[in-house]
Design a protein around this nucleic acid. Structure first.
Lengths: 341, 341
DNA sequence: TTAATAATTGACAGCGCTGTCATTTTTTTA
DNA sequence: TAAAAAAATGACAGCGCTGTCAATTATTAA
């Protein structure tokens, strides 16, 4: 059956404690011994038993991904990325969906963490953007890593993996400007999401950099939904037209909104991209299912998640690697929904 | 700190073995004793330590959800349902995404199952519909529950939770017939998915039941994608029109296809539902984001998953409850994409 | 060279639980 | 009523590992 630490010890001719030291990468093991043990480990394809470790040690080898599902695609990507880091590092992943708006989330998660002896947590928006919630988690005896929108961490409650929506949004807007557009509208996502705010900042910054006057009539408040895209685009293309500032391009805060805008344009007999350019954000499967396909920004969620998990695990292991706060800038993907003005 | 079995034993005035018997619902415990122990358990809010159980016992308290992601929404729903059953029953869930088309899936999953000492597996399409794969899983020493499309299990390899797509499809088609449609087209999903086959059967059966002649020109082979809906609808509404059998309604095998069909209709200036009725299937978030909103069929994925997990766990516990093969029939949801002919 | 110090290694208990088997208590049978 | 059988309970080892601390070996200082 499966090899245990005893088998390895016997094969290597050392005590189990020494094997334990080697697999835990502790100091005070002679190089020669270490190699002998490692060889035995490899030969037997030994993998430590998680239950035994959890039971015997004070350390835990479980991390949890706590999330309030904003978007199924996103969550699935995150899970896969985290999982792949866990597999490599011999950690176990517990997933814990919850409702960030419910009264008792914090308590619920606190209980869960205590109950399951969890060593660390990964948090994504919207949970990662709720300061009191994050604080509560940090107050427990668990490590936390947050994935959030921005260029630098907003505080030092925990290490963060940052997604620089601002720069990406600037690049996207610049893409539109490069195509000759000057009347560029912006349909926002939920105002309380940092990503919305950041993307908006990037949009503004791009305009400014090219000396294009900002026109607040071209900014529509919305939410991250298809409907919001539909109504936003209608408002822009119909109502605004009275004021003679019909935009020639729309920056949609995500792909869902963009899909809605695309749909609205079709309703109004506006051809895309000839008469109107539309860009999305996120590169969701959505964006390849529209017609024309959306120009958008891609963020490597899988990799972001893996990164976050690795960061978390190295924290748990107290590896004093200079906690490199990683930052990802979503990349522009030009497809068929944008064209020269 | 957390209460252990020792604390409970002390409080109840019995040995830890007796506590163990009570929490494992074993026989040979006097009613009175059982109550005393139960009371102590409640008082201390005792919950057995999973690691200790896994380590000490021959039993395992871990189940795994193995899936090849056909659809993020579906997976997320499944996970939540399974999780809620696990929580109630004191089980732990491991999730394991994989690629059903890759050469080594079976081996990979086999290793994972052995490695993690897993007691049971939950399988969903497409994995649940791959006989050799299922066989391999059953050959391991794990219990399996499959969720699949159909009315009865295709074999007795494992208990199944069936989703009766056929009856649901018949109901949907009947809905169209009731609205006066007789030229009802069908855009199929991937041919190798049982759901496609079942839905097609339901469609045919409804036609037959109402003595409507079947016209094979109205059946389009496709796949579960938006694009397939677009091209399918175009083909039906343009090409077929030459033969003067333009359909007045389209049964799309899922919501994505329906969204595509909706989109194509818009392109062709066909108004929905006035000139053409379109139905979907699955009640995905998609279906509420289209305009008009899709008439579709809803399956309670959350509950199906919970049911499957409970079935699996009772199997693991060898509770000889007459393994009730549950069957769900998706329910028709009438929204705005269908109207009188 | 030897004693003192540091580095390396191992013996052993114990984490919280279950499985085995012996012991005690209760019930049944003669 | 006593003996036999059955039911209920407990003592104890051990699952695979880590933590503690003692024992051994290597290294350095004197």
């Amino acid at each position: 059956m499966k090899a245990t630490i005893n088998d390895v010890a016997k094969l290597a001719g050392v005590s189990i404690k020494t094997v334990s030291r080697v697999i835990n990468n502790e100091t005070s093991v002679r190089q020669l011994t270490r190699e002998k043990v490692q060889q035995a480990v490899d030969e037997l394809k030994y993998q430590p038993n998680l239950s035994a470790r959890n039971l015997a040690g004070t350390k835990s080898y479980s991390i949890a991904y706590i999330y309030d599902n904003p978007n199924a695609y996103y969550i699935i990507d995150m899970q896969e990325g985290i999982l792949s880091a866990c597999k490599q590092q011999g950690f176990e992943l517990l997933i814990h969906p919850c409702d960030s708006k419910s009264q008792g989330v914090t308590e619920e998660v606190v209980n869960m963490v205590k109950q399951a002896r969890i060593a660390g947590l990964i948090l994504t928006p919207p949970l990662s953007e709720m300061p009191e919630f994050v604080q509560s988690m940090v107050d427990l005896d668990v490590k936390v890593v947050r994935i959030m929108s921005g260029d630098v961490a907003p505080d030092d409650l925990s290490p963060c993996v940052m997604v620089n929506d601002r720069d990406a949004a600037q690049t996207i807007t610049q893409h539109l400007i490069d195509l000759g557009h000057t009347n560029i509208a912006f349909i926002a996502g939920d105002a309380e999401h940092m990503s919305t705010i950041e993307r908006y900042k990037g949009y503004r910054r791009a305009l400014k950099a090219s000396n294009i006057a900002f026109n607040k009539d071209l900014v529509i408040e919305g939410e991250y939904s298809f409907d919001s895209g539909v109504s936003g685009a209608k408002q822009l293309m119909v109502e605004q037209s009275n004021k003679h500032v019909r935009p020639t391009a729309i920056f949609s805060c995500n792909d869902e909104i963009a899909a809605g805008a695309l749909f609205a344009a079709r309703l109004m007999n506006i051809s895309i991209p000839e008469q109107l350019s539309i860009v999305g954000f996120e590169n969701s499967p959505f964006s390849r299912q529209t017609w024309p396909k959306l120009t958008t920004a891609d963020q490597p969620n899988n990799q972001i998640a893996e990164d976050a998990a690795n960061l978390l695990i190295s924290q748990i292991r107290k590896q004093k690697n200079p906690i490199t706060i990683s930052q990802y800038v979503p990349k522009l993907i030009v497809r068929d929904s944008t064209a020269k003005c």
